[in-house]
Nucleic acid binder design. Structure first.
Lengths: 356, 356
DNA sequence: TGGCTTATGTAGATCGGTCTACGTTTTTAC
DNA sequence: GTAAAAACGTAGACCGATCTACATAAGCCA
């Protein structure tokens, strides 16, 4: 029961094949200067010994063929779709993908990213990281970096994001076409300062621009909350407490949308008859028929694979930053409907329900 | 805009502090033989230069302080809870956690695990891996390994699993207490051969044992399908096609449960009035009020942190395998209710509905 | 056949740490 | 006061690959 049946190294292979270590290394890398005969002999020895190169030792000088994906919250099912796209593309180019999570704030995020750099990962994909742009620039200067889910451009990193301005417009247009006028928006506000490149900021801007475009300046209503289940639920109580409650809400993200739906369900407020709800992201659960949330799809798989492609380009030498925007599409499901007749839901009624 | 502002190495620190590299290394590791004076001086130099040790180089001889977590499918939200637990415990012991996913079958799984070993990760947590036990033994012999979500015991690895036998019993007992007798069970069958240690096998066994215990031998009905949304939906059609359809189903996993609920929703079969549904895992979406799936909770966070703890023990030298079972608890929500009066749902009715 | 280019293979430094062996100095013990 | 033990530092091999020089053999052309 020997714990470590000592793994074959490049020296073992060299000895077994009767050649130098350098020669084996050349075969390994497909480098110039190897005859077919030698190549065959070395390869024979390699699988005779069950040899596998140590990615670690390899990384000391050359590449590690490892990409790091940093994510804040794995339980958000939209990011798992992004990751799927990243992996597909990276895998086809011979890179391994490792994922690191950090959901305890900026310090932990920084630590995780440093851990990836310490392990000499060839490049990093940062999915919706927090912190100032400047921090991202610093990382981009150290190692090839692509930021996914924040708008660009950056100086020393590439960005891939959904066109959140257009996404918000799709939502507002849809609701307006259904007759809604009092449309609220949930904007994420966390512990960290909001940067202009973060999706919550751009989506809020897009919402305001679209409202203005429809002449609904007076109805603009941005509610600051957390983009998660609880944040969505809390926002419902705020909205119903308005003198003239809205008839629809653009929740900014599906996670908050679920919270909104849950709270309405508890309060027995019928959706979409009394209130229309729109999410953003098209997370997996949004398509469950019991939920069937109208939302904006960001084609996460494509965004992920695009990020991978850009990252590999960058690893292979490109230095000019690239900043891309992916066009989102609206997924109309059953949480949006025509505006309620009259002035919409009677506030008194709703408050009674809420207190009953 | 220099791409690589060359990072400080241990030699730079040594030179700056006017000591040997070995001395710096000792300080780094907290090894024996360092005076307080020297320690202070070296540490001063370290942060004067902004020094960070290369985890890569470190791993060449000593430990890499990295744990690998292998998972088949990140989009299953239950695994993200497990990961949360793993990270919490590992982090407090100074280990970094990297996650690797592979959902394209045994070959890709093997490749991912080898990639982790190639990077000299100190230990591996495998979450619900497929393949024969023997394959796991092989991995356990190469590197410290804990298998999460498969039953033990293993020879050369530890296991942490939910007591699936007890979990199935909880479900059947609950349904029987509500008057159900015709209770079906969905068993996962994929491309790979089912091993006795896999949860789908143990849950099915537990279901059968509990049915027998209640004298319901004649009603045992195991339906083989995939444990995902589609598999659950498909199973509904099979169940409704029975001469005497069941009145309740133990879906084996929440993911399949969601599929079952979706299909019932499409068919306008009321749950739980006409049919009771129970999941397994207590995934995040199960608690959404629109879904509110009765399920079995496995306290994933605790399982994850236990796995971490066992892994670190193993890394630090333990060799006797440990195999643990965590007690599950039933979460009664609103997808289960009393058995329908009479002989339950009329099959004709359901078929009509299905075809209408 | 001599001179030059191209193909093939090897030696050995290098990456950034860890760790063993050993030489000094300082303490402790009697 | 002196031997033994403990404390402190350093040199240098080592981990397993890559990569730059360089040496040697082979091919080509006039």
């Amino acid at each position: 029961m020997n714990k470590h049946p000592k793994r074959a190294t490049i020296s073992d292979v060299a000895e077994h094949a009767g050649v130098s270590r350098a020669a084996v290394s050349k075969v390994l890398r497909g480098a110039y200067g190897v005859s077919d005969v030698m190549k065959a002999r070395v390869e024979a020895s390699m699988d005779a010994l069950g040899y596998r190169p140590s990615a670690l030792a390899r990384g000391m000088r050359g590449r590690s063929f490892t990409l790091g994906v940093f994510v804040v919250d794995l339980s958000n099912t939209f990011v798992t779709v992004l990751i799927e796209g990243i992996r597909a593309e990276a895998g086809s180019r011979g890179y391994q993908v490792f994922i690191g999570e950090a959901n305890m704030g900026l310090a932990q995020q920084k630590q995780m990213i440093e851990a990836m750099i310490d392990r000499k990962m060839d490049g990093l994909v940062l999915i919706a990281p927090f912190g100032p742009d400047e921090e991202l620039e610093k990382i981009g200067r150290i190692t090839p970096t692509v930021v996914l889910g924040r708008h660009g451009p950056g100086q020393d990193y590439d960005t891939v994001a959904s066109d959140d301005l257009a996404g918000s417009a799709l939502i507002v247009d849809h609701l307006v076409s259904l007759g809604h006028r009092r449309i609220s928006h949930l904007k994420h506000v966390g512990k960290e300062k909001n940067e202009a490149t973060m999706p919550q900021v751009v989506r809020a801007d897009g919402y305001i621009q679209a409202m203005v475009r429809h002449g609904l300046d007076a109805e603009v209503d941005v509610i600051e909350t957390k983009w998660n289940h609880q944040g969505g639920a809390d926002a419902v109580d705020l909205m119903l407490d308005r003198d003239a409650p809205p008839t629809a809400v653009h929740t900014g993200t599906d996670m908050a949308g679920f919270g909104v739906l849950s709270r309405f369900h508890e309060l027995s407020v019928p959706v979409p008859e009394a209130f229309s709800v729109v999410g953003y992201d098209n997370a997996l659960a949004a398509s469950l028929p019991q939920i069937s949330l109208t939302t904006v799809d960001q084609s996460g798989f494509e965004m992920g694979s695009l990020a991978s492609r850009l990252l590999v380009e960058r690893i292979e030498g490109r230095v000019e930053p690239v900043s891309t925007l992916v066009k989102p599409t609206l997924m109309v499901r059953t949480t949006t409907g025509p505006v309620p007749v009259g002035s919409g839901v009677k506030p008194e009624l709703l408050r009674n329900v809420a207190q009953g």
